[in-house]
Amino acid sequence: MENNIQKKARLTGLLYLLVIICAGFAQGYVRGTLVIPNDANATLTNILNADFLFRFGLVADLIAFMLDAVISILLYQLLKDTNKTIAMVASAFRLIAQPAIASINLVNHYMALKVTDGNAATSELAGTVMNFMTAHTTGYLIAGAFFGVHCLLLGILLYKSSYFPRILGILMVLAAGGYLIETFGNFLFPGNEMLLATIVGISAAIGEITLTFYLLIAGTRKQILN
């Protein structure tokens, strides 16, 4: 019979999978297809023609961030025996990244559509919409810095824990590098957005998806007695 920790590990994996689906849909599909970099008029047209999809993207993101609050606590409970202080700090950084910064940042996503209510589709309106989406991207990057630190600390904990394969820790440290490189690379060396997005996309996908399915399928490497 599975003990409590095994159940928590699998629950964490399930919630993490839902987060990946929801956040991936919102960022990768909704904003990834409707928001056209450096083309405000096309972006406005896309949002107006797919306003429900745009709204649904916001809801999907919000669900993901709410689930992330639960994941933060569950990961702390799973890893506190490895190092309670690091586990607590890692949890705090994840809570700040998604449930706090990223959730508030959704106001920019919402306002990009709200400002179109009752207004004609002019170049001025298109510029306003693009400004909100640019602000959203900036907020997304700021949240990514905090999430990158979380992934780094999580990777250290996983590497040191006797209940998880060390490879998970290594992969999460690589994911952390991807997030941090994207955030600080965009702020310090603008113009390389596509390259930086590819780096974080590959490193985060490998690290987080591997961790997700390990938790979902295996739980922990061995039973933990309560």
Rank of each mutant, 00 (worst) to 15 (best):
P99C: 11
M88V: 06
L180I: 15
V89Y: 01
A176E: 06
G178Y: 07
L125M: 10
L125T: 10
F93G: 02
T137H: 13
A135Q: 13
A120C: 08
I86Q: 03
I167G: 00
F146G: 03
A120K: 13
T138A: 11
A121S: 14
G144W: 07
S162M: 08
R94H: 11
L95I: 11
T183Q: 10
H109M: 12
L125K: 08
K80H: 09
N105V: 14
F146E: 04
V107D: 07
A143G: 15
L157F: 02
A120I: 13
F189I: 15
F147D: 04
S162R: 10
T85S: 13
L106N: 12
E124V: 15
M172Y: 00
G169Y: 04
D68F: 09
L74N: 11
L195D: 05
A126M: 03
G148S: 02
F164E: 02
S162A: 14
I86A: 10
M172E: 03
I104E: 05
N186M: 09
P165E: 05
H109F: 13
A143L: 10
F147Y: 12
L174W: 01
L168C: 00
I181D: 10
I181Q: 08
S91N: 09
L78T: 03
T128I: 14
D117Q: 15
F184I: 12
T122F: 09
D81E: 14
L152W: 10
L152K: 06
Q98V: 12
R94G: 11
A197E: 13
G177N: 08
I167H: 01
V115S: 09
I101Y: 12
G169M: 06
F147G: 02
L174E: 01
N119W: 03
L113H: 03
I101S: 12
G185R: 02
T82I: 12
I104Q: 04
N105G: 14
A197L: 12
L168T: 00
T138L: 11
G118C: 04
E193F: 04
C151E: 09
N192W: 03
A102T: 03
L171C: 00
A126Y: 01
H150D: 06
S72F: 08
L78C: 04
E193A: 10
L74D: 05
A87Q: 07
M130G: 05
L125D: 08
G155H: 09
L196G: 06
I167W: 04
Y76A: 07
G148W: 02
V149C: 03
L195E: 07
T82E: 11
L78Y: 02
K114I: 12
H109W: 15
